[in-house]
Design a protein around this nucleic acid. Structure first.
Lengths: 168, 168
DNA sequence: TGGCGAACGTTATAACATATCATTTGAACC
DNA sequence: GGTTCAAATGATATGTTATAACGTTCGCCA
């Protein structure tokens, strides 16, 4: 099968659909991939666009469902895990360890650790960039001769609006 | 079967075996349970003893295997998850989010957040207690009106001894 | 244009976690 | 001692998250 000029796989590739992706994000993705010497394929871009289109962090299997819905075909878990792995590797996406979910980085201009406030009520994830926090984490590691590669900071609780509406 | 004075279940309960548990840890467990108004059952204590006997963090399924080996009977995942849930709840055990594993708290004298240095080479988990870190985390939450309930800090990398032996 | 490594697809399975419902336990009270 | 009731446990099934193994396709570049 698929020996004609237009192969099956070409069709599959050419028909990858994705949410509309603002030029800003596409350019960012291209820049990051160029910097990391990685390929930005349509499938990878589609996964990224899907995460950007979501209001909240999504699990890998939610992402599979979203992409299957949009593209009207089966997508294997491993495929999506590879996209997520790639997007995480180049710094476009962060993984939330405590909820097993993924979301686009809010401050992707530069590489940085993942630090979040996670609301257990509404599910909102608020990315934090705190120099003092980073420096204290580095200091803790340093004092113990520990070489940090990657640090997870996830503060779970109630966000301002949920806390207000709960406690009235 | 089992209608005699000594029921099967009695036998099962009475035959729960566990690693030797230093009096220090047993008393701590009793104190914590009393404080939390929770029951310290033989099965819960056995799970705790097994974690204490392990040199490294263990996954839930590793713990199942350890307990099955020691007790020579099948143990359902849910059973062990309930023990882990209990031990975590009363503060005797911490869960490592980034490795899906569990380990006894090193500083169980008082309740506190879980903060670890995790070596990706040897698997060692080094518990940290840093007041400055806690105060920064609280400040970050505070500035945003966020009410923290539980915070995860996991610094992944190479511990001092692995870093040394790797980089020679 | 042919060779090569990265990316992708497919199938299967491993690893982690919870739902449901029946049964047992143990402490409190009479 | 017996009754009662919530907590703990057991058994079975299932849901969720993640990876292994292996072959094919893609896209670059010599």
């Amino acid at each position: 099968m698929g020996k004609s000029a237009t192969k099956d796989s070409d069709v599959a590739r050419s028909t990858i659909t994705a949410p509309k992706l603002a030029a800003k994000w596409r350019k960012l993705a291209e820049a990051r991939c160029a910097a990391a010497n990685e390929r930005l394929t349509p499938a990878r871009l589609a996964a990224y666009a899907e995460l950007l289109a979501s209001k909240r962090p999504v699990s890998a299997y939610e992402l599979i469902a979203l992409m299957e819905d949009r593209q009207q075909r089966k997508i294997a878990p491993l495929t999506v895990y590879r996209h997520l792995d790639f997007l995480t590797r180049v710094g476009l996406v962060h993984r939330l360890e405590s909820t097993h979910s993924y979301l686009p980085c809010d401050h992707p201009e530069h590489a940085h650790e993942s630090q979040y406030l996670l609301c257990s009520s509404c599910g909102h994830a608020d990315e934090v960039e705190s120099k003092p926090l980073e420096s204290i984490l580095n200091k803790i590691a340093d004092q113990r001769g520990f070489q940090p590669e990657n640090t997870v900071v996830e503060i779970k609780g109630l966000c301002a609006s949920c806390a207000t509406s709960d406690s009235d």
